[in-house]
Amino acid sequence: MVDHNESAWLEAALRGDRNAFGKLVQAYQVPVYNLAYRLLGNAADAEDAAQETFLKAFSRLHTYQPDMKFSNWLLSIASHHCIDRLRRRRFVWLSVEDDPSVEWLTGDGEQPDAAALRAEQARELQALINRLEPEYRTPVVLRYWYDLSYKEIAEIMGITEAALKSRLHRARLQLAEMLEAQPGEGHATTATVKEPSRSPRVSRAIAHAPLA
């Protein structure tokens, strides 16, 4: 499940080679950070959680089983760590003002209005996710940002596929209710949601079947 380079880095890191481990950090910093950011809802906590994930991974490298993708193993550590943090800080106010994706979204070729619209949508979306219970956030994030199968997500979360289906359903239900409850939202805004120019991360076919 690991490519040649990754395998060599892993072996070297297991012998305590920090440079080799740095290559692994370089390769997986974005997926791990993104998961932490989407689960925790702010950049400062995401930075700390992502760092902590890699530190834990380094100290537990000897427990890694190659029958699991290394990226999924890292995501599993990250998601458990983030859920623990969320449970410890149930009543902390979550701000979406420091959303780093806003900067990310404003590309050179994009019109300021379009960039502002996308930034606003990103903020709204993260605000919705922040309101989900911790155990419902992970399946949503892993499904939409990582394009993982139900089997892989269940493996990462350490739950059964049946439990995952149930959680994903409930998460979507809650998100849809929150979306409908927002003033000015609902079906009228459907047309304003621009179909994105997809990054290579997600390539699944969306089942947007036409209504009969």
């Binding site: 910093q29 990310w104 459907t190 994105p196 947007h208």
Partner: peptide, 29 residues
């Protein structure tokens, strides 16, 4: 509504850390 939500989630980008993340992890390690 679910389709709209699905499109919004699909459109959200991957967010990466600020530059220098690898060095910060190494320092902490």
């Amino acid at each position: 509504t679910w389709q709209q939500l699905d499109r919004m989630l699909m459109a959200a980008p991957l967010v990466g850390p600020a530059p220098g993340f690898v060095a910060r992890v190494d320092q902490r390690l």
